[in-house]
């Protein structure tokens, strides 16, 4: 049979036999969910590159017709966002590094070093994870504005740093707040990882004469590299996307120190209506840093998740 068939060894009949309802159902489901998740994304991209009239006239997910196509939206959004991008990165990067590093240190101190009242301190960290943002907003604003106006105090200093303006000092309280708020969750994440490490590593370090800090620096820190990948990505995304603290401490999208999340809702909105093309472009641009991070750390991320499991 197969010898006489023109397609050689390829047997068409076997394909037909394999088709049954179950398989058809499976593929239908896959295609459905693929569409379910991808259509909004595709719609977003299409909207971003359409002129405002084209958005109004064509179907949301249809590609723009030749005269409806424009890169102006993206360009405009980029111009609007460029300052706040810088603000966001200036805030998120130190805040992420700080909370991850301190979290790892705290976890090391809570799992691999023995001292009294350890359990009590750990409980405080756990409680810290569950303190709701809303509950601290007012005290936070009062603290940074009235009790300890750090931003105003260091403004001249910040202004003298190249590439920085005086208003960037407003971000410093935000960075400190994010570090403080991020430490508990980072500590808990690192703690579960450190608990899985053999205790004998620290003991071997002690026998070799290393101090507690040297054991951390030379043994534990390098070993926890994969976990740093995971926690770093998680924490960066959290801080970069955070809105409430930024809104409370930097106040409003027109402040020069406003990060992306504050500026984003204001772009493309005016008294004459909403420009969906510009909004979509801005939204995509705002997501780019987190996307880059995921791609850059993908390997570490996967490794970290593996070692944790």
């Amino acid at each position: 049979m197969s010898q006489s068939s023109p397609t050689g060894s390829f047997d068409v009949a076997s394909l037909v036999e394999d088709v049954n309802l179950r398989r058809v159902g499976q593929y239908a489901l896959v295609v459905f969910f693929l569409g379910f998740f991808l259509v909004p994304l595709e719609t977003g991209i299409m909207t971003a590159i359409k002129t405002n009239e084209s958005v109004a006239r064509s179907l949301p997910f249809a590609p723009p017709a030749s005269e409806g196509f424009t890169l102006g939206n993206i360009q405009f959004a980029l111009e609007q966002l460029s300052g706040s991008f810088f603000n966001s990165l200036v805030m998120s990067i130190p805040a992420t590094i700080g909370s991850v590093l301190f979290g790892s240190m705290a976890a090391y101190g809570l799992t691999m070093v023995n001292w009294r009242a350890q359990m009590g301190v750990l409980m405080l960290f756990v409680v810290g994870v569950f303190v709701p943002y809303q509950a601290v907003l007012v005290p936070l604003a009062r603290f940074w504005n009235n009790i300890f106006p750090l931003a105003r105090m260091i403004e001249p200093m910040v202004a003298s740093i190249p590439f920085f303006q005086g208003y960037h000092a407003d971000l410093v309280p935000l960075v400190i707040t994010h570090i403080a708020y991020g430490i508990p969750i980072c500590t808990i994440l690192f703690r579960s990882y450190y608990q899985s490490l053999p205790n004998s590593l620290v003991e071997a370090g002690k026998i070799d004469g290393a101090s507690i800090t040297k054991i951390y620096r030379r043994i534990i820190l390098p070993i926890s590299k994969p976990m740093f990948g995971v926690v770093f990505i998680y924490q960066f995304t959290q801080i970069y996307n955070e809105f409430l603290f930024a809104f409370t401490l930097v106040t409003g999208s027109d402040a020069p120190a406003a990060p992306v999340t504050l500026v984003l809702p204001a772009i493309g909105a005016s008294t004459s209506g909403i420009d969906f093309g510009i909004r979509m472009s801005a939204a995509f641009l705002a997501a780019v840093p987190t996307l880059i991070l995921y791609v850059a750390f993908a390997e570490q991320f996967a490794k970290g998740l593996r070692t944790e499991a």
Binding site: S200, L201, E203, A204, I207, I219, I223
Partner: peptide, 13 residues
Amino acid sequence: IAMVFQDYALYPH
């Protein structure tokens, strides 16, 4: 003193 551990406790990195 020097100690040899059951799991060797070699620094993996």
